[in-house]
Design a protein around this nucleic acid. Structure first.
Lengths: 250, 250
DNA sequence: GCAAATTTGTCCGTATGTATC
DNA sequence: AGATACATACGGACAAATTTG
């Protein structure tokens, strides 16, 4: 007879509830498995055959469900080793926004501009709290990152963007709001990926960029929120300007 | 001999570049197909068999790649109809954050709190621009949404949350920054989904909520950014308080 | 309204690559 | 080095949804 029981789905015609794809049930099943067992990122999940049996689905359906969950960083797969609970990062947001930025030939500059605006909003909108809550040690670390930028300035640009990223991550850290920090770095990642495709030169005026970062550090050290906000404006203005220039060039 | 040529991958040992899963190559292939042909959301993609041939992969691999892309809303599939370019929404962010909120039994309140803080930051940080750029007609629409909330207040709560959502969407619209608007509604969706699971009662003090929204409208009508910011603080304070109360209850 | 064609959904069996012990 | 456990990938078959003649 060669045909196994398709079973289950055929037995229960699901009265009138819109029949959702089996893989979606599997997705929900894996999610609730994680929640029921109160698993943490890195904890192991059942193997694929085990999930098949537990959820009454074939490997294909289970695997497709796992692909969906990996795309959301809810599940992580190590080939030949097993499947685990993911880190729940915002990697999906980065992928999503990056592609959006690459896609629209007219609006892509708008996407970049929006992105920068939000990052500036995070830092300027929180100016008071940041200036008052950044500890001395953290300020020292900020200054250290500016030094890194200086050192990497003439040499390879690899360390430069790295230091820039670390700087802004650290700047937002004392808020105790992980979401803001992760969104900010996510936007930063998108910018770095998309900007080169739009002929937005990110490696220009490094000297000015360094000076602006230094000014931010100084403002924080002086606990001067007004100067802090001004320094941020100064910092983001040229970025936005470069986007505008590239937009005009088309 | 019953065995087709596994071909291609075996023929090209990929010198030393870390061999990336075939489905990832398919993901990239589909992405660049969309970019090369400059497709827009809603445009049709090749059928699965066509993609198999074009990308030299089996149907399983192509389907897994499609699942990844649907999770990111880069691709949309209609059963029995075809595959299309997705809407590029932030649905993945909602899924991701929602799950994060449901997962951690201690930090979930923090997630909710972070989320509300960002929404408030969007509106308060843009106070000046919002107050000055909202057109009279838009303000009328805002007032209209407050009326909706009033009408739905005693009746079913369905229209209430709907009107609330529409209110804040409209409030941020004049910024011309789609990202902010979409992030804000995404966070709103996450809140509505997760809050009930944490015993955060969203349907309390509806009268006060309505009054606060009215106050926001009045402030905008008076073009008074200071009062506007104060009204926003008043609006978000009880939300945050309810989260704190629920946190304390555990 | 029905039947055929097209397209995605699901299943199974098998072979291969990869990591761990 | 070998064995084992696991994920990756393939190909073929049938089911279900949608459109079209």
């Amino acid at each position: 007879m060669a045909v196994g029981q398709r079973a289950i789905r055929q037995r229960v015609p699901e009265p009138k509830t819109v029949r959702q794809p089996l893989r979606q049930e599997v997705v929900d099943g894996i999610k609730s498995y994680i929640l029921r067992n109160d698993l943490r990122p890195g904890d192991p999940l059942p193997t694929e055959p085990a999930l098949c049996e537990a959820l009454g689905a074939s490997r294909s359906s289970v695997r497709e469900a796992i692909r969906i969950l990996t795309a959301l960083d809810i599940v992580e797969v190590r080939h030949g080793h097993g499947t685990y609970v993911g880190r729940l990062s915002l990697s999906a947001l980065v992928e999503s926004l990056t592609f959006r930025g690459l896609l629209s030939p007219d609006d892509d500059f708008q996407v970049m501009s929006d992105l920068i605006e939000v990052r500036e909003l995070f830092e300027r909108g929180m100016a008071d709290r940041l200036v008052s809550s950044l500890a001395e040690e953290q300020i020292d670390l900020l200054a250290q990152h500016v030094d890194e930028m200086r050192r990497a300035g003439a040499g390879e640009g690899r360390g430069f963007v790295e230091a820039d990223r670390a700087f802004h991550t650290l700047l937002l850290a004392p808020l105790g709001n992980d979401l803001i920090g992760q969104l900010s770095t996510a936007f930063w990642d998108v910018y770095v990926i998309v900007a080169p495709h739009l002929d937005v030169f990110t490696r220009e005026h490094e000297a000015a960029t360094i000076a602006n970062h230094q000014r931010i550090v100084d403002a924080v050290r002086d606990r001067d929120p007004v100067e802090f906000a001004a320094a941020l404006t100064e910092h983001y203005a040229p970025v936005r300007q470069r986007i505008e220039e590239a937009r005009a060039r088309r």
